[in-house]
């Protein structure tokens, strides 16, 4: 099908984007890469009467690399992040370029953006999971000003966020914690949406886990942390027994949905398998003394 009738408005700078959203916010959707929104428009599952295209707002495509954090402009494409693997800005955050290669396919990654993915709020989306795992913050702009919101508070449910109608997500900031991190997922075919994804992070210290984090995607309406599994890890070395105990705790802690793609029981088994893999990967990276 084709997109429904709508007014297509282009912002040329941040001020114009914010003005357009102040005027049309309630009936508008922001479009960046369009790789999630255009399918919804073509199927008429989304019927905004106004589209605000921010693709030409170049200040929102910048990358700011600081000592303590990495800020990625909302318009940064998945492909740009994937290809930045090994470069200085992503030192300590190598999990970002590594994970970008799991998103969709090359022609999707060339257009889709990290800001669009976060604002879309798919609970199985790789960026949503990593943003929760790594305590990332979104920058939201409106005529009322700018605010920073942790992704844990931004993501409210299936495709539901706390972004106000007159706000636009302009950047996401990942702190440089020095944690080793990994995201693994299972999809029936490479490039498909993941049935389940598991991400883990830990700060290596004297051979034991400090600040362990486990976040799961595809098991509920948002990416979820599993404190029960994190508690198993705290202060212990990532031995196979400890990893297995944490994976079992994670599987026991979730009640994933059943749908046409997989049963709840299948998803729970995937949780155990994927948490094991993610933690094993984190343990390996930590032993090598490599962050993220």
């Amino acid at each position: 099908m084709k997109p429904p009738p709508l007014r297509y408005l282009r912002a040329h700078d941040p001020e114009e984007a914010v003005e357009l959203l102040a005027e049309y916010g309630d009936e508008a959707k922001v479009i960046a890469g369009g790789q999630s929104l255009v399918p919804l428009l073509n199927f008429r599952l989304a019927r905004p009467s106004v589209l605000v295209d921010i693709g030409a707002v170049t200040p929102w495509a910048t990358l700011v690399s600081g000592d303590r954090s990495l800020e990625l402009g909302a318009l940064t494409t998945h492909l740009r992040i994937e290809r930045a693997g090994g470069t200085e800005p992503f030192r300590g955050l190598e999990v970002l370029p590594r994970t970008a290669s799991l998103i969709g396919h090359l022609p999707i990654r060339s257009r889709g953006t990290i800001g669009g993915s976060l604002a879309h709020g798919d609970p199985a989306a790789e960026w949503c999971i990593l943003a929760v795992l790594l305590d990332a913050e979104a920058t939201l702009c409106s005529g009322r000003g700018e605010r920073r919101v942790p992704l844990t508070r931004l993501l409210q449910g299936f495709f539901t966020t706390t972004i106000a109608p007159d706000e636009v997500l302009t950047a996401v900031t990942f702190p440089r914690t020095g944690a080793a991190a990994s995201l693994v997922e299972h999809a029936p075919r490479h490039g498909d949406f993941a049935l389940v994804a598991a991400a883990a992070a830990a700060e290596p210290a004297d051979g034991v886990c400090r600040r362990p984090r486990i976040v799961l995607g595809g098991v509920g309406p948002t990416p979820v942390r599993v404190p029960d599994a994190e508690d198993v890890l705290a202060g212990r070395a990532l031995t196979p027994d400890v990893v297995a105990a944490a994976a079992a705790a994670a599987a026991a802690a979730v009640d994933p949905p059943s749908d046409a793609h997989a049963s709840s029981a299948h998803r729970r088994r995937l949780v155990a398998t994927l948490v094991t893999r993610a933690l094993t990967h984190v343990g390996g990276r930590a032993r090598e003394g490599r962050a993220a």
Partner: peptide, 23 residues
């Protein structure tokens, strides 16, 4: 027309992209 089949793939500024997912 929803970015799955890829038969509409073209190059946009030199990179492969789905022509059905670009307005």
């Amino acid at each position: 027309e929803h970015g799955v089949c890829g038969t509409c793939t073209v190059l946009v500024d030199g990179l492969p992209a789905r022509a059905c997912l670009i307005l």
